[in-house]
C-alpha cells in the first residue's frame, strides 16, 4: 500500500456573499497519492465533522472532469498545477510530503461567493441566454444530412464547443474577463452552418451581456487558455472580435 503523507492546508472561509472571508489553516496527515484533490478535501471534511466542526463547502458533481462544477484556485492557479485538467482530476501524487496548499475560490465580482469555496456562476447562464443558441423549433428540423459540413470546420467547432463552463478562465484572467467562455460559444456556433444566420445578432448580445455582468476587458493575457481544462484556444476570442466587427459594419 502506498504510504500516507502530510500536507498543510490553508483554505478560504466565508459564510456568505456579504460576510468577511478569512483563511483557516489545518494540517492533514492522511493524504494518499491516489486520492483526487477533491477526495483530499472530503477527508479534511470528515476530520472536521468528527470534531463537530463545520466542513468546508466546495462545489462538485461529476468528479470526472466534464460538468464544470469544480473550480478552485490552488496555490494561485485555477484548477491546480496541471494544464488541461480540472480540479477533480488533479491527483495528490502531484504534491509531496510537507507541501503547503492554499485554496481560494475563483474570485470575480461577477462570481459572488456563496459560501467558502462555492461561488455563483449564474452570470454564465445569462450570457448564453443572451444569444448562445440556434433558434430552431423542436420537431421541425430538416433531415440531418441535408447540409454537409466540412470535417475540419466541424472539428474546430467541436474544439470550441467542449467548454465545460467552469469559469477557470475568469478565475485566472488578471482582468477577470469572460472572453474565452463567451468567445468559445460564439466560435462554436459561428462555425457551424446552422449557427451562421444569427451570427451578428448573437455576438453583439453576448458581448453586451458579458459586460453587463461585470466581467473585465480582455488584454490578451492568454492565461485563460493556459488554465482551461479543455485547452480552448484564445483564437475563440479572435473569432468573437471578428464577428463583432462584422456585426457593426453590416
Amino acid at each position: 500500500m502506498s504510504k500516507d503523507f502530510t500536507v498543510h492546508l490553508k483554505y478560504w472561509r466565508q459564510n456568505g456573499p456579504d460576510a468577511k472571508g478569512f483563511f483557516e489553516e489545518r494540517t492533514l496527515n492522511t493524504v494518499n497519492e491516489h486520492m483526487s484533490f477533491l477526495e483530499m478535501l472530503d477527508v479534511l471534511n470528515e476530520e472536521l465533522q468528527l470534531e463537530g466542526k463545520e466542513p468546508v463547502e466546495f462545489d462538485y458533481d461529476c468528479r470526472e472532469g466534464i460538468c464544470g462544477c469544480c473550480n478552485l484556485v490552488i496555490n494561485g492557479q485555477a484548477h491546480g498545477p496541471k494544464g488541461g485538467t480540472p480540479t477533480c482530476q488533479v491527483h495528490m501524487y502531484n504534491y509531496k510530503d510537507g507541501d503547503t496548499i492554499v485554496i481560494e475560490p475563483p474570485r470575480a465580482a461577477a462570481f459572488p461567493v456563496i459560501k467558502d469555496l462555492v461561488v455563483d456562476r449564474s452570470a454564465f447562464d445569462r450570457i448564453i441566454e443572451a444569444g448562445g443558441y440556434v433558434s430552431v423549433k423542436t420537431g421541425s428540423a430538416e433531415e440531418a444530412n441535408t447540409h454537409p459540413v466540412e470535417k475540419h470546420k466541424s472539428d474546430t467547432a467541436f474544439d470550441y464547443a467542449t467548454c465545460i463552463g467552469c469559469g477557470a478562465c475568469v478565475a485566472a484572467c488578471p482582468n477577470a474577463s469572460a472572453s474565452l467562455f463567451t468567445g468559445a460559444k460564439i466560435a462554436h456556433l459561428g462555425l457551424m452552418p446552422q449557427g451562421e444566420v444569427e451570427r451578428s445578432k448573437r455576438v453583439v448580445a453576448m458581448v453586451d451581456q458579458m459586460e453587463a455582468e461585470g466581467f473585465g476587458d480582455c488584454s490578451n493575457f492568454g492565461e485563460c487558455e493556459a488554465v482551461c481544462p479543455q485547452e480552448i484556444s484564445i483564437s475563440a476570442i479572435a473569432e468573437m472580435r471578428k464577428d463583432y466587427v462584422k456585426a457593426v459594419f453590416s
Binding site: G76, Q77, V102, A226
Partner: peptide, 20 residues
C-alpha cells in the same frame, strides 16, 4: 479592480500558452 475587488492571496501563472 472593479471586476475583481478581492484579489488572490497567492497568484501564479500556469505558463504554457499563457502570455502573462
Amino acid at each position: 479592480k472593479k471586476a475583481r475587488p478581492e484579489s488572490y492571496n497567492v497568484y501564479k501563472t500556469k505558463g504554457g500558452p499563457s502570455h502573462q
